[in-house]
Design a protein around this nucleic acid. Structure first.
Length: 871
RNA sequence: GAACUGUUAGCUCAGUCGGUUCAGAGUACUGCCUUGACAUGGCAGGGGUCGCCGGUUCAAGUCCGGCACAGUUCACCA
């Protein structure tokens, strides 16, 4: 019977859900293990980044649950102010409705409709992946509790004097028509042009001053031309004026140290309204601020020319105009960096506007310290540097957005005034006004601020707000689950989100939000390109699940995901995962089809089972260590090889009965016990196939599940047995090699003779007999004539040759081994004959070298004997 | 421009405290095998001057310095 992932996945996910296995409640008798999901955009769809991220979280959560912890994975979505609003605007446009033509309330209603329709699709997709989230806790950054938390926090910060309002130059997104934060601007290097434009000097008939600019359209907003006061070339122009081309407006020539004399012509045109540095220079020199752009990036009346044109069209048109007017001197190629909006991908326009800001300098301090002293551990640690640099140079956070979809700034302006009161509602603001200011105000006369808050101003509260820790800071849940344990996230939101959550944790609760941050890599394709919709190089995760099964895809994601390293995704990875799923299934088929009988347990089976028991104990410890270091990829590989190579290829092959023969009960029971433990170790990585098999492997009660079982704990390890078994494997592999070399089919039994040696795995002789299909293993004193031979771990083995022994080939092989052994000995002797080594190295190291020397000598002697025998 | 990270097999990467011939895993590749769980498989095998130069050390893939290249983040001069 073949394994059908589709059926199994649906069946078991429903089973888990119906029995509430994902749900966690406060239980003081158990250790909490809590993870909050990085909330995906509410109207988003699952992409490969989500797949990776949520697979990792599910592995951690499921393992914690198996360890008996009270595992709680809180899911939810983010309202994604700017992204969702853009989608709603586009939707309305497709229906012939412009945002500007409808009321704020009507727009919000459309947005909610959109959210209800598409919201949560992504969470359903996560279920396909097997995510064991506590769905009863699903939160939304704009639901009632979360919204009220945001408002509370705004008012609190305002009362602390940390929130202020002012006109500043901000990053303006002309497509979304809103300000965005510094972090939302992506700079890209581009080939652009540097235009040299000359301005006639007003006080002269023939003199000009030439400036270099990449944005000639901003000439229309020029307020001055600036030169360095130390630049001799311009001494004669001090105090003079020049004339703005095309417009004829007269502007001063000013001097400021800011200007780099080396760059361009040494003269810089100043447009205070449209460049951060120009704004500062303009401020110092009391220049006019001429804003020539509308909020959508088109030119306004102040420009005087090209009114209504888009900024880039204006640039195209002003060039010939400048040329015709004789002002264009030359055009050069020039590489510079242009800022784009992270969300809309349009060129950011520096723009002066009234915005709300949060003072960050003090807030940041405990959050910086927490990461520096590993109270919050970043994995991998290299991100500590990046984090520190950002924190130490943090600027005030522009938290206002000129959008409608989001939390509206809770500031209420007094009638006819710019004074405001931060409050939860107009009524409350009116009450505050009368209480504190002695003003009698009708709430209806209060005007609420038009702006929305940055999306991240709500998600930074996430670990607190999902447990209602802002509104009700002493509730049972927040006291139990907070701080959470692990956060799994991509490094590109380290500042947007992670850093700010840490800040919020300390500011609003005096405690970190989580103890460990596991930063994943970015999912890229084989050509190292970031996977993106626009490139079309990202496979649809659900298609992959259909094709390879959720378990297969999960394994595929993990196989190539070292922490922090980029992940080069290729379909061969989920394919490998699918193949492994099949492998596990086939092992189950073998075991489940065994007939049992009351027969004695064969020695080889008893020994092999004992060996695997010890192997497992050893590797349980390895796994603990790998998980402790978040080496999930390696942990998977440990279980993968444990199952495929050791359990399937060795243990099952040893204990499986010959055809038509039943297996003894002890062997079967022990095998199933080991199988079950392996399934438990595999479960966090491959929840579905492990549940399917586990359910069938033993007698289960209604409500049993592998996901709520207890992970085995490691017992003692018999290292001597493990070593002996490795030697036995070496002998078996050598016999197989002999068979391959001489074309001897497996069914043909061979006689094995071994020269007396303590390292011959005598205890495991029964295993050798079965796995090598040997008729006898005989210990001898002298090499038998006419034999093939091999050396395994310095022990000499012989197999009577069925045909002619190829002496030359055998000698050649032996000589190769001899060279190798002699080289090894030489390297050892180099150390042992070195006086300084004997004096300087620790005794254990020297002892080890002596052992190596003895081994090498024994091996060389054995090879030489065999060579002599062949002569 | 600055800081950080990396450079090990065709590819993607491990390599912990400097100490076993330590040069490894997965994958890809080659040969053999349709053997009663599994060809989505099994068995066996080939493959690397650990980026380059120098230093420290009895001993360097591992520590230090320099160089080259790549990447990430931050800051930017029109």
């Amino acid at each position: 019977m073949a394994y059908d992932p589709r059926t199994s996945e649906e069946k078991w996910y429903r089973y888990w859900m119906e029995r509430g296995f994902f749900h966690s409640t406060v239980d003081r008798t158990k250790t909490p293990y809590c993870v909050v999901i990085p909330p995906p955009n509410v109207t988003g769809v699952l992409h490969m980044g989500h797949m990776l991220n949520n697979t990792l979280q599910d592995v951690l959560v499921r393992r914690a649950r198996l360890q008996g912890k009270n595992a709680c994975w809180v899911p939810g979505t983010d309202h994604a102010s700017i992204a969702t609003e853009a989608k709603v605007v586009a939707m309305l446009k497709s229906r012939g409705v412009e945002k500007k033509d409808i009321s704020r309330d009507a727009f919000i209603e459309h947005a909610w409709e959109w959210t209800r329709k598409y919201g949560g699709i992504i969470l359903e997709q996560l279920k396909r992946l097997g995510a064991s989230c506590d769905w009863e806790r699903t939160a939304f950054t704009m639901d009632e509790t979360r919204s009220a938390s945001v408002i509370r926090v705004f008012i609190d910060l305002h009362e602390k004097g940390l929130i202020y309002k002012g006109v500043r130059m901000v990053n303006w997104d002309p497509a979304a028509k809103t300000a965005v934060s510094d972090e939302e601007v992506i700079y890209r290097e581009e080939q652009s042009k540097l235009y040299y434009v000359r301005y006639r000097i007003q006080e002269s008939d023939s003199d000009y001053i030439t400036v270099a600019t990449t944005r000639p359209e901003t000439i229309l907003g020029d307020a001055a031309v600036c030169v360095n006061p130390n630049d001799e070339r311009f001494f004669h122009l001090r105090g003079k004026h020049c004339i703005v081309p095309l417009l004829g407006r007269v502007i001063p020539i000013i001097q400021d140290e800011y200007v780099d004399m080396e760059f361009g012509t040494g003269a810089l045109k100043i447009t205070p309204a449209h460049d951060v540095n120009d704004y500062e220079i303009g401020y110092r020199h009391r220049l006019d601020v001429i804003d020539i752009f509308n909020d959508d990036g088109t030119l306004n009346d102040n420009a005087g020319l090209f009114i209504g044109l888009d900024r880039f069209d204006a640039r195209q048109q002003i060039i010939p105009a400048l040329q015709a007017a004789g002002n264009l001197v030359k055009i050069e190629d020039y590489a510079n960096k242009i800022g784009y909006s992270e969300r809309t991908d349009v060129v950011i326009e520096p723009r002066l506007s009234m915005q709300w800001f949060l003072k960050m300098k003090e807030l940041v301090k405990p959050a910086l310290a927490a990461v520096m002293n590993d109270d919050v551990l970043l994995v991998p640690a290299k991100y500590k540097n990046t984090y520190r640099h950002w924190m130490e140079n943090v600027k005030d956070w522009n938290i206002s957005r000129q959008l409608w979809w989001g939390h509206r700034v809770p500031a209420y302006y007094l009638p006819g005034s710019n004074d405001f009161i931060a409050a939860r509602s107009a009524e409350e603001a009116a009450a505050v006004a009368s209480e504190k200011l002695g003003l009698r105000v009708d709430p209806a006369d209060l005007r609420q601020d038009e702006d929305c808050l940055d999306t991240w101003f709500s998600s930074w509260l996430w670990p607190l707000s999902v447990f209602n820790g802002i509104l009700d800071p002493d509730n049972e849940e927040i006291n139990y689950y907070y701080p959470t344990q692990d956060l799994v996230s991509a490094p590109d939101i380290l500042f947007f989100w992670i850093a700010r959550m840490i800040i919020a944790g300390y500011e609003f609760r005096g405690a970190k939000p989580f103890s460990n941050v596991y930063l994943t890599g970015l999912v890229r394709d084989k050509q190292h390109r970031k996977m993106s919709k626009t490139l079309g190089n990202s496979p649809d995760p659900l298609d992959l699940i259909d094709k390879y099964g959720a378990d297969g895809v999960r394994v595929g994601m993990l196989l190539c995901s070292p922490a922090g390293g980029d992940l080069l995704f290729d379909e061969s990875l989920p394919e490998q995962g699918r193949n492994f799923t099949t492998k596990i299934w086939n092992a189950f088929q073998l075991v489940s089809n065994w007939q049992t009988a009351d027969v004695p347990q064969p020695e080889h089976a008893r020994l092999a089972l004992l060996w695997f028991e010890n192997y497992l104990n050893e590797h349980l410890r390895t796994l603990d260590a790998q998980f402790a270091q978040y080496r999930l990829s390696e942990a998977l590989m440990t279980v993968y090889t444990g199952f495929r190579d050791e359990f399937s290829s060795w243990l099952l092959e040893i204990i499986k009965p010959a055809r038509g023969i039943p297996v003894d009960r002890a062997t079967r029971d022990a095998c199933i016990s080991l199988f079950e433990r392996l399934l438990q170790l595999l479960h966090p990585f491959m929840p579905f196939v492990t549940e399917e098999i586990w359910q069938q492997l033993g007698q289960r009660q209604e409500g049993d599940s592998i996901m709520i079982s207890r992970l085995p704990t490691p017992g003692p390890v018999d290292n001597a047995l493990l070593q002996e078994f490795e030697r036995a494997k070496g002998v078996i592999v050598a016999v197989r090699g002999l068979r391959a070399e001489h074309n001897i089919p497996f069914r043909e039994a061979l006689e094995l003779k071994v020269k007396h040696h303590p390292r011959h795995p005598r205890r495991l002789e029964s295993v050798l007999l079965k796995m090598g299909n040997l008729s006898t293993v005989e210990e001898i004193d002298a090499p038998p004539p006419g034999s093939w031979s091999f050396i395994a771990d310095t022990v000499e083995y012989f197999v009577p040759a069925a045909g002619e022994v190829n002496v030359d080939a055998a000698k050649e092989k032996l000589r190769g081994e001899l060279d190798y052994a002699k080289g090894f000995l030489a390297s050892v002797m180099k150390k042992l004959t070195n006086e300084k080594f004997i004096q300087g190295a620790p005794p254990a190291v020297i002892e080890n070298e002596r052992r190596k020397e003895a081994d090498a000598l024994a091996k060389i002697r054995a090879i030489e004997e065999q060579l002599a025998r062949l002569d």
